[in-house]
Write a protein that binds this DNA or RNA. Sequence first.
DNA 1: ATGAAAGCGCTAACAG
DNA 2: CTGTTAGCGCTTTCAT
Lengths: 348, 348
Amino acid sequence: MNPRSEPTLADVAALAGVSLTTVSRVLNSRGYLSQETKDKVASAIASLGYRPNQVARALHGMRTQTIGLIVPTVALPFFGELAVEVENALAEHGYRILICNSLGKAEREREYLNLLVGNRVDGIISGAHNEDLEEYHDIRMPLVTIDRALSPAVPNVRCDNHAAGREATERLLTGGARRPALLTSSSGPQNLRETGYREALSAKKITPVVLTVPFHTPVEQRQAMVDERLDSVAELIDAVFATDDLAAAEVLEWARTRGLSVPEHLRVIGFDGTSAIRRALPGLTTVRQPIEAIAREAVRILLGQIETARRQRRRSAGGGQDGALGNEVRPVYGPVEFPATIVEGWTA
Amino acid sequence: MNPRSEPTLADVAALAGVSLTTVSRVLNSRGYLSQETKDKVASAIASLGYRPNQVARALHGMRTQTIGLIVPTVALPFFGELAVEVENALAEHGYRILICNSLGKAEREREYLNLLVGNRVDGIISGAHNEDLEEYHDIRMPLVTIDRALSPAVPNVRCDNHAAGREATERLLTGGARRPALLTSSSGPQNLRETGYREALSAKKITPVVLTVPFHTPVEQRQAMVDERLDSVAELIDAVFATDDLAAAEVLEWARTRGLSVPEHLRVIGFDGTSAIRRALPGLTTVRQPIEAIAREAVRILLGQIETARRQRRRSAGGGQDGALGNEVRPVYGPVEFPATIVEGWTA
DNA sequence: ATGAAAGCGCTAACAG
DNA sequence: CTGTTAGCGCTTTCAT
């Protein structure tokens, strides 16, 4: 045996003087083993530093205990925190996570989707998609999306963007704003935070001012674009609801360079409320997403799907008797939404 | 065949009316194939939506094309960006990444180490370690550390912390500071940024003021601890060098609540310079780590080690002739350091 | 130019 | 209580 490569079951068996099966049994504590055998095997394992090859296990068991997570980039605190929470929730169930950063490129997202399927992950959680990549549709695998709905057949978990958008806007108004603008990444009916914003304004007969800077704008260009958008409406507005905290930071910077004091001349509220940004900008009033709840629920639904799929596979393989299976996790239609909460700072 | 599970090579072969071998050949474009065969196979693949099972491939080929990355948490922008850069660098070489967040818990880091070995990743990059976990030492696998040195035998890639610490401190002094404090996570000779700080001060005969708040302090407690540390030396100091940007943000918040204006009463310089924090706090003067360069170099060294290991394994397996192998990637001793650069804001 | 068969490391029937 | 054997899906000699 090459010393630089990992020992195998056979090595352990040989050293312990028993068969492969026996070793496998002590590893998985299945069936009856004499204490003596157990000890022999255990010491062989220890002395070789043996660790079961999960790849072989996966090949046999048809399951990798791994799920794929696709996000735009964990370099953004929101997705970084989301990834950590998903990882935590999965770890409790013995699963691990393969994180994929699409960087907003459809091409890359497609490649990752193939990679995940090729690696036979047990399921996928997607928190990023370039306006439905068709690959998502004909994927034969448990799938849950976070935040952006893909199709009614795919479970979607998110915070209640609509209500949150309305509440953020109302918070600006009750704070004294008369004309709040919206700064977001893309405008339209699918943008529920925008819908909430418009709803809050129409209740007060205020005309909306919607500014957009695309999500994947290179970081060096963002501030200039934000400045340009805000300058063009500076006379009209006295508050800004930015749909993410980093955009809110850019609004604050704009206000600073234009000599507008916050919140006196300009009120600002952000969105996400990640701990990293709350550390960086503790003064920012923002809407905090319940990231942990979202992650846990997405994981719960996904694992339910995986379980169901396994059952079906077993049934169609083993043939025959159904048994009473009333307690399966039911498929989820429609989005699952969690409430977001406003975190007070001094910018609004 | 169960419709919900992925098709296999055998399915493709059956549909195309050829043998497994042939299908495998067209997939890997090895040997001579008639155009007709190629076409038949290709269309069978397409119509089944077949994707090779990487798990099986890995089992056979004894390589997973996956490397593990261990970091404290990608929820912190520095490690989030590092993860993305490592992923990018690896992708260029056909490797993927398994990200593990240790959350600063030795227990969890140990588990992850086992997981990675169990999953037979081809190598590990570690950017986190609880004061050498012994497991790192007897690991039979290519390993590179980022930022923290583990042992002389393990390559270490980092920014030039010593020089950077000196320069940051000098920047405060040339800006007009007379007594800059250091705020860091743990003090001692292994903290090279601190060493640089002390060096810059001793050149000017200034007595150091070193404040510490442990790295893994829960976020809710941090500000209070920072406040407490700073209050205790408020009379002495007129500047702070914080060894990460988030700590610098906490210093700014302290200054704000104490009515100290920055940079007039208090100069502040941070460390890391991630894009996320630069977006959040564009005014912060900081030392920017060359994250991309670090990631690329770590990957380069690791892939070199993997290549070398494979060669050795082949040699010891196939037995015999060495051949001329002068162009191997040489093992790296001593750390590889990249220069960090100061990014100007208005806080210093 | 194509196929048959062995084997990667492990688990699970199926014997004893 | 323990061993033998047959795969999981793929690559790779070795034949033909």
